[in-house]
Write a protein that binds this DNA or RNA. Structure first.
Length: 270
DNA sequence: CGTACAATAT
DNA sequence: TATATTGTAC
């Protein structure tokens, strides 16, 4: 036999959510001690016990930074790409989970890029981002339907569902032919999140799994703050009586057999 | 908003 | 190289 189709899986494991790397997107970012070490400060003095429902994306990986030829050329060699151009968006399983969750609770009918984007309230995310991903997601669903093999995972194509396989797909996605009128409309609002770091990935930097070097003093620990605070004033939406407790995402049991898959939204029925 | 195509990364 | 993913244009 030849090699299994674990090709992507091998890589997948490598990119697996390292607690350190994956945490930032979850709830607790880092310990206050580390925050101090990294010269990070809490905006609102949120204690570590207060998990901020920050749907803000974090850099998927913080590669080590070394001055590669970028010596003290203070002037001249500026990089406008950091503020003008936006790096490629990396759809992490968690981010996709959020995406799927939003769509699931919006309903296929309302699952439009714009709505999804607003519901996700992910700082930095644009309609184009969601639209592009939505398109691919639809193809994934369609493909899955065609291969609706009784009972199992149609992951026979390791080349179309890398990310999608990380998130469970609601059943409602497979039968848009439902009856109109029974749409689940969940007036989910996005919590007014203040400017915060967003996704941003290094265009040409490898994001290889870097073991936590957090224990090292900030000798040179100048972490990149590639933050393009694209704070978009949310038009107050419709009406938000109670801010939804964004449970945020959880680790999907993709590689972990026995992980529970929670749904972000507290609503199960409609 | 949806689809197609192109660019880029792996 | 080919494939996958994302961005951008239509």
């Amino acid at each position: 036999m030849k090699e299994d189709e674990s090709n992507w899986f091998s890589r997948w494991e490598e990119q697996l959510p390292s607690p350190d790397e994956l945490m930032p997107l979850s709830q607790t970012l880092i310990t206050p001690h580390l925050a101090l070490v990294f010269d990070l400060h809490n905006p609102n003095g949120i204690s570590q016990s207060t998990p901020p429902p920050a749907p803000t994306l974090a850099h998927p990986s913080s590669s080590e930074f070394e001055n590669s030829g970028d010596l003290g050329s203070g002037a001249g060699g500026d990089e406008p790409a950091r503020t003008l151009k936006r790096p490629r968006l990396v759809w992490t399983p968690q981010l996709h989970k959020r995406f799927v969750d939003a769509v699931a609770h919006l309903g296929i009918k309302n699952a439009v890029p714009k709505t999804i984007m607003q519901l996700m309230s992910v700082d930095g995310l644009t309609r184009e981002n969601v639209a592009s991903h939505l398109q691919k997601y639809r193809l994934y669903l369609k493909r899955m339907q065609g291969h609706s093999n009784g009972g199992g995972l149609a992951s026979s194509d390791p080349a179309t569902d890398h990310l999608f396989a990380s998130s469970p797909v609601p059943a409602h996605f497979l039968h848009p032919g439902g009856r109109p009128g029974q749409d689940h409309f969940m007036p989910f609002v996005a919590p007014p999140q203040a400017g915060r770091p967003i996704w941003v990935t290094h265009p040409q930097f490898h994001q290889q799994r870097q073991v936590g070097h957090f224990g090292s003093p900030p000798s040179n620990g100048q972490f990149e703050h590639s933050i393009m605070a694209r704070q978009q004033a949310q038009p107050a939406a419709h009406r938000m009586g109670a801010p939804p407790p964004y449970g945020d995402d959880v680790e999907s049991g993709a590689a972990n057999g026995g992980r529970k898959v929670l749904t972000l939204f507290p609503t199960g029925d409609d």
